[in-house]
């Protein structure tokens, strides 16, 4: 199967600290891939390396055939990204923020696309509110909207359901599953394993910067195993 994300021996050092140590994996086209790990296991650092937000210390990776080492801006132009705990610029309104992202990304018909997301994520009433005055949940919706504004081939999401209420979580999960049916790919990082088992097709378990396991959820379901049991087993063994 064609893979859209490839990582080979990805390593990142922050000074003396090795945050990620020689991680390799590939993500097939049309899948929801989950990168699972505890807090501080290196998930966000891997996302930052994949998307060219931080420099790679060793190894290489590519998204849609483009290496962030060679052209990080191009990688980010091809994909949608929802970073962890990100706050949009304080003094733009929600609609202005989507216009801002749209202009940076060179998207046409921004307003129509933004309207769709305001309606879909049910926050049209916050369109003209300053980002700094939005609740965390609404900010997460806004970040979701900016990432999917132009239906990118690949979406990279750090903790996709964080701060969302149960109704919105269900909506987003259903959306992510249907999104990949159209041949697009979603890469998520999370430590909420129930969500991962529900929406992911394949996954990788990361622990203290090293990869412990890669597998598919279908296999796990066939064996009647729960992802959190496997995860605890792997982490306790490591």
């Amino acid at each position: 199967m064609e893979s859209v994300i490839e990582a080979q021996g990805l390593t990142k050092d922050y000074g003396e600290l090795r945050a990620v140590d020689g991680v390799s994996f590939s993500v097939p086209k049309g899948a929801v891939f989950g990168l699972l790990g505890q807090n501080g296991s290196g998930k966000t650092t891997i996302i930052k390396m994949l998307t060219g937000q931080v420099k790679i210390t060793e190894g290489d990776c590519s998204i849609l055939g483009v290496s962030p080492k060679v052209d990080p801006v191009r990688v980010r132009s091809l994909i949608g990204i929802i970073p962890e705990q990100e706050t949009p610029p304080s003094f733009l309104t929600s609609i202005e923020y989507l216009q801002f992202v749209g202009r940076i990304r060179g998207i046409h018909g921004i307003d129509e696309k933004a309207e769709f997301w305001f309606d879909f994520l049910d926050f049209a009433d916050k369109k003209d509110v300053l980002c700094k005055d939005l609740s965390r949940g609404t900010r997460q919706k806004l970040m979701f909207a900016q990432a999917f504004l132009d239906s990118p081939e690949v979406a990279v999401i750090d903790e996709p359901l964080i701060n969302l209420d149960p109704v919105m979580q269900r909506k987003v999960k259903d959306f992510l599953k249907s999104y990949t049916k159209e041949g697009r790919t979603v890469f998520i990082s999370t430590h909420i394993l129930e969500n991962a088992q529900e929406i992911c097709d394949s996954f990788a378990v990361l622990h203290k910067g090293s990869l412990l396991y890669t597998g598919s959820v279908a296999e796990l379901n066939e064996k009647g195993k729960k992802l959190d049991d496997l995860f605890l087993e792997l982490v306790n063994r490591a």
């Binding site: 930052k48 998307t51 937000q53 801006v73 191009r74 980010r76 132009s77 990204i81 929802i82 970073p83 990100e86 706050t87 949009p88 610029p89 304080s90 992202v101 940076i104 990304r105």
Partner: peptide, 14 residues
């Protein structure tokens, strides 16, 4: 001084 530059890092901008 009043801006988080991580707000730009995930966008296609140098």
């Amino acid at each position: 001084e009043f801006e988080s530059f991580s707000a730009y890092l995930f966008l296609p901008v140098k």
